[in-house]
């Protein structure tokens, strides 16, 4: 007697698939492409008409003249935006400590006379492996190095950083962060 529920099951599923699986995403896409074209397509930054990145996706920087971002655990290359991944290392994992130490060494090598404590987000990997941001503390930590290598005033570097900082939502929610790629793009084009 309950077999009579098979037909409604199949047909109802079909109808709901049509509505939620096709009409709904198509509708959202159309509206998104009409009203939020830039955001819907990845918030791409164009320089001279060429796409050079996304405001939302970080890139690897290990050249001392650039502002460095978070560590990235994606493979085969860091900040691989086609395959997001975190490190998933536990807090006691010796590999985590090794990773942190490697980064610490790189920081020390690039700026041997900086003896300030290193902000934690500069030596840890992000959840996505694509984090476009670092904390203000981590950005400021790198100011003397960048200023020295680029022969700029520290104040100027700081200004660029502050310009590319997003504060908390309503001053309360989330964290204030610096967009690493945008800072570096601006550093490269910066002219006094």
């Amino acid at each position: 007697m309950n077999r009579e529920q098979i037909k409604p099951a199949v047909l109802c599923f079909t109808a709901l698939t049509l509505i939620t699986g096709i009409i709904y995403p198509l509708f959202v896409t159309v509206v998104a492409q009409l009203f939020f074209k830039n955001q819907a397509n990845g918030s791409i930054i164009f320089q001279n008409g060429k796409p050079v990145g996304s405001t939302l996706i970080g890139q690897t920087f290990d050249d001392p003249k650039y502002l460095w971002g978070r560590l990235s655990a994606t493979s085969p290359v860091s900040f691989n935006a086609a395959s997001s991944s975190g490190s998933n290392m536990g807090p006691l994992n010796p590999a985590l400590i090794e990773m942190v130490k490697t980064r610490l060494n790189a920081l020390k090598t690039s700026e041997p006379d900086n003896s300030k404590p290193v902000p934690v987000d500069l030596v840890t990997s992000s959840a996505s492996g694509l984090d476009p941001h670092i904390s203000l503390a981590a950005a400021y930590y790198q100011v003397p190095r960048i200023a020295q290598l680029r022969k700029l005033e520290q104040k100027e570097v700081k200004e660029i950083i502050i310009k590319n900082t997003r504060s908390r939502l309503l001053g309360l929610i989330g964290e204030p962060v610096v967009n690493v790629l945008q800072v570096n793009l601006e550093l490269d084009t910066y002219k006094r």
Binding site: G86, M89, P91, L96, T124, S126, D131, S135, G174, E175
Partner: peptide
Amino acid sequence: NMEGKESRFG
């Protein structure tokens, strides 16, 4: 503990 966390979320 920022390992595995995004900066914007802290």
